[in-house]
Nucleic acid binder design. Structure first.
Lengths: 224, 224
DNA sequence: CTACAATCAGTATTTGTTCGCTCATAGAGT
DNA sequence: ACTCTATGAGCGAACAAATACTGATTGTAG
């Protein structure tokens, strides 16, 4: 089971280097080069760690850090060009987990990432017993496992990655039809129905996906 | 420690009466009879409450209220000669804390002033322990949490975000019916009832949402 | 042919709105 | 201070409207 690292860095060359090095340590990476793309991406994905540069086009790393902390405790490592800037950041109490100063050695980068993950894994004895496996399009729960269709999987991903958060049908549609295609809201219902059937069978409970009247759907973790 | 009340009222006789009555309740008062004298006075003094008449020579009460809000959150009670005018004032969203209509009983005057001060003193020391979560449509208080329907949430949001501020039923309607649809005032009552039930259960107190007779509703933060 | 996506129409459910009544409040008159 | 009256507010229950679910059906790609 490999961890996904989000790299937010506008210098593409640097981002690639970071990516390469982390990959060689068996991390899966995703790059974002513009500040404004971060929050939308996080609505659908849930990385294990975020490496967040401060100087960015669009929303700055500082704004983003604050914004992310509104809804998630995902570990954030702030990346800054200047030592003095880090001092200033510490004063802001953004809620970042670590700070790293450019230029950094790649050994240091990996060390910090691993340190964070080690802390995290030892602190939380695996609260989520349900897991999404992107490579096989399966959902695992306890000892069982089900397969989802591509469509079902894309639909479920944002819901699963942001438990309790309510998604409107429109926003769910947006995540699966990149081409802005418009389908009936009943279509979403239909897929939700299939998802529910599979998931409820898996978890032996109902209401893993709940409807919120007039708003949309949300996922809540099952007992156990 | 006695509280100072600023009385802005051009009718000197009325101002004196107000002054006398408030003094008898151990408030220190200061009178100003011309609109243009208010801002200069406030640069040097800091009253606990301002009673602000609307019809004034020089700067009107409306202008003054706006101007004062630029630099201070001092409680302002607007004093108006007509009920209809209050409705208009609410629409302007001046940021006043309360409204009182001439002619008023002096008991009422004192009651309002005391209410404001009580609210202020109890609200000041603690940060917001109550939270609105837009992504999950929930209200959190201490360790508990309740869910609101879409409608209830939209209704509660303005009240919550501007504690102590009074919203008329009409202005609440405006915020939820963008299409200028008109519904009965009893409809708002009905939703307020449901909101109150949920909120009171959450906070274990009553009167988190208060009625202001003849005007509307306001939200006050519960005790911590 | 099969598996899956999309749609539709009928039904079920949830929520929003109104009604009619009672109670509360504020001001006026005695 | 006391009632009286007009108006506002609270509330339960009936009603209306909006929204969601379901199963059947059609469309489509491999």
């Amino acid at each position: 089971m490999s961890e996904q690292i989000l790299i937010v860095e506008d210098e593409v060359k640097l981002a690639n280097l970071m990516s390469d090095f982390l990959s060689s340590h068996h991390f899966v990476t995703h790059q974002i080069h513009h500040g404004n793309e971060v929050l939308p991406w996080l609505e659908i994905n849930r990385p294990s760690v975020i490496l967040l540069d401060i100087m960015l086009p669009g929303q700055s790393g500082i704004e983003l850090c604050k914004a992310i902390r509104q809804f998630s405790n995902v570990p954030i490592i702030m990346v800054s060009a200047k030592v003095e800037e880090i001092d200033r950041l510490l004063g802001l109490e953004l809620g970042a987990d670590d700070y790293i100063c450019k230029p950094f050695s790649y050994a240091e980068l990996v060390a910090r990432v691993k340190a964070i993950l080690r802390r995290l894994n030892s602190a939380e004895p695996k609260a989520t017993v349900m897991q999404l496996d992107e490579s096989t399009y399966t959902v695992k729960f306890k000892t069982s496992c089900i397969e989802l269709t591509n469509f079902e999987f894309q639909l479920f991903k944002p819901l699963f990655n942001n438990p309790n958060r309510i998604y409107s049908r429109d926003s769910l549609m947006d995540t699966m039809y990149a081409d802005q295609r418009i389908v009936s809201h009943r279509t979403i219902d239909s897929h939700i129905k299939k998802l529910r059937k599979k998931l409820d069978e898996l978890t032996q409970t109902d209401s893993v996906i709940q409807s919120v009247y007039g708003v949309g759907y949300r996922f809540v973790h099952p007992q156990g």
